[in-house]
Each structure stands twice: as structure tokens, then as C-alpha cells.
């Protein structure tokens, strides 16, 4: 009915966090970049990079699911935009679906992203160890 709204809200929050992280990282790394102090041993996955993965997962899923809801006539291009808003019974059912299916979707995508980050972090650790061994 409108389960994609929960991941959409998360996507908005993650986008805001991504913008903040990017600004913060630029402020920190810009002087080091100017001095040419960033080398191979400084390889790391920044928070903006990690958040960009979560953003792609969430926005991609939300876009395609929103189209699926449009296909099934659950989303319409005129107010109230969600056909489930037409009656109180349908609205209650929609809110229940958002609380169950929607929240599960958001949690699953975030957990998948967490595993992705953990694997990437382990890979970086391995690369750093091999670089340190070579030096």
C-alpha cells in the first residue's frame, strides 16, 4: 500500500547525513591533500563513501517500489496521492503495513549495508597489513 514510505524517510535522513559527512571530511582532508601528505598507507573507506552506498540502495529501492505501487494503482499523481487515504479503514491498514513491512524493509537494507561495510573494512585492513609488510 505504502510500505516504501518508511525506506524513503530513511533515505532522506541518510542523504542529509551524507552531505554533512562530505563537508566534514573535505574540511579535514583538504589541508593534507594540499601538502601532498595522503599516500597509499592512508587508504580508508570514508563515512561519505559508506553512506553513498546506503543512499543508492535506499533511493534505488524506493524509486522502483514507488513505480510498482503506481502500476498497481496504489499511488496516484493527484491528492491524496495514496489511494489508501480514501477511507479510515484503508488508512489504518496502510499504517499497519508501513509499521510491519516498511520497517522490515528499512531494517533489512540497513543490515545488508552493514555487512557490506564490514566486508569492505576487513578488505582495507588486509590491504594495509600487506602494504606495511612490504615497507
Amino acid at each position: 500500500m505504502a510500505c516504501f514510505i518508511v525506506p524513503a524517510v530513511e533515505a532522506v535522513a541518510v542523504t542529509a547525513a551524507f552531505v554533512a559527512a562530505k563537508k566534514h571530511e573535505q574540511k579535514i582532508t583538504a589541508p593534507a591533500h594540499e601538502r601532498g601528505e595522503i599516500g597509499e598507507k592512508d587508504v580508508k573507506i570514508t563515512w561519505s563513501k559508506r553512506l553513498s552506498w546506503l543512499m543508492a540502495l535506499l533511493w534505488g529501492g524506493v524509486l522502483l517500489l514507488a513505480f510498482e505501487h503506481f502500476w498497481h494503482g496504489e499511488v496516484v499523481p493527484f491528492p491524496p496521492f495514496l489511494t489508501a487515504m480514501a477511507s479510515p479503514e484503508d488508512t489504518a491498514e496502510m499504517l499497519h503495513e508501513m509499521a510491519t513491512v516498511g520497517v522490515s524493509m528499512a531494517v533489512t537494507v540497513t543490515a545488508f549495508w552493514g555487512v557490506m561495510c564490514a566486508i569492505a573494512q576487513a578488505k582495507v585492513k588486509k590491504i594495509k597489513a600487506s602494504v606495511a609488510k612490504e615497507n
Partner: peptide, 12 residues
């Protein structure tokens, strides 16, 4: 990632 995001959501 666009397709994996949608796949995970549809899986749920």
C-alpha cells in the same frame, strides 16, 4: 546497488 536495494525490499 539500485537493483539490490529493490530486490531486498521486494524480498521482504
Amino acid at each position: 546497488l539500485i537493483y539490490w536495494g529493490a530486490s531486498l525490499m521486494w524480498f521482504i
